[in-house]
């Protein structure tokens, strides 16, 4: 029997989806459940979900290049008070190319190039690295509200 509230830590969920955009909905459902349970307010939870949608869309489009045989893996964990979401594709590797500053007036009306800005705006940290043995791993981190990540 627990007499004190315990910090949630470790892996909270792992999901592998085929490279179809409609599968992003499944990711959002699973993620929403986890994020809500960690005590994020509804606005922050929404923005985390938007950031992860962007990350998974990137993995499907630029990583796996819409190859439905290739998977995107999403792992959600909490470590040292940070919600960490890793999005791993099975592609040949891609750079998170800055397609030019989307806030530059010359880029303002371009139809693409805003996804990275949104991810960085909504999360505390966004990193990517080459995966082993293949693909790209995008890591998104968000500080869990103090005292909220408890069971």
């Amino acid at each position: 029997m627990h007499t004190a509230r315990e910090q949630v830590t470790g892996l909270l969920g792992r999901l592998a989806i085929g490279s179809r955009f409609e599968n992003i909905e499944l990711v959002q459902i699973v993620l929403a459940e986890i994020v809500e349970g960690l005590g994020f307010d509804s606005d922050t939870a929404h923005w985390i979900e938007v950031a992860v949608r962007e990350a998974v869309a990137n993995a499907i489009k630029h990583g796996n290049r819409l190859d439905v045989e290739k998977k995107v893996e999403i792992a959600v964990s909490v470590d040292q008070g940070n919600l960490t979401i890793e999005v791993r594709d099975q592609g040949q590797g891609f750079e998170l190319v800055e397609l030019g500053d989307p806030l530059d007036p010359t880029n303002l009306m371009k139809p693409s190039g805003r996804g990275i800005l949104y991810m960085r705006r909504f999360m505390d940290q966004v990193d990517y690295r080459r995966g082993e043995p293949q693909g790209t791993v995008l890591t998104l981190r968000k500080r869990v509200p103090p005292g909220a990540a408890t069971i």
Binding site: E49, R53, E54, A57, K110, P111, S112, R114, Y118
Partner: peptide, 12 residues
Amino acid sequence: TIDSSGVGELVS
């Protein structure tokens, strides 16, 4: 919900 693709379509 709107994402960067949706925003891109509004711009287009």
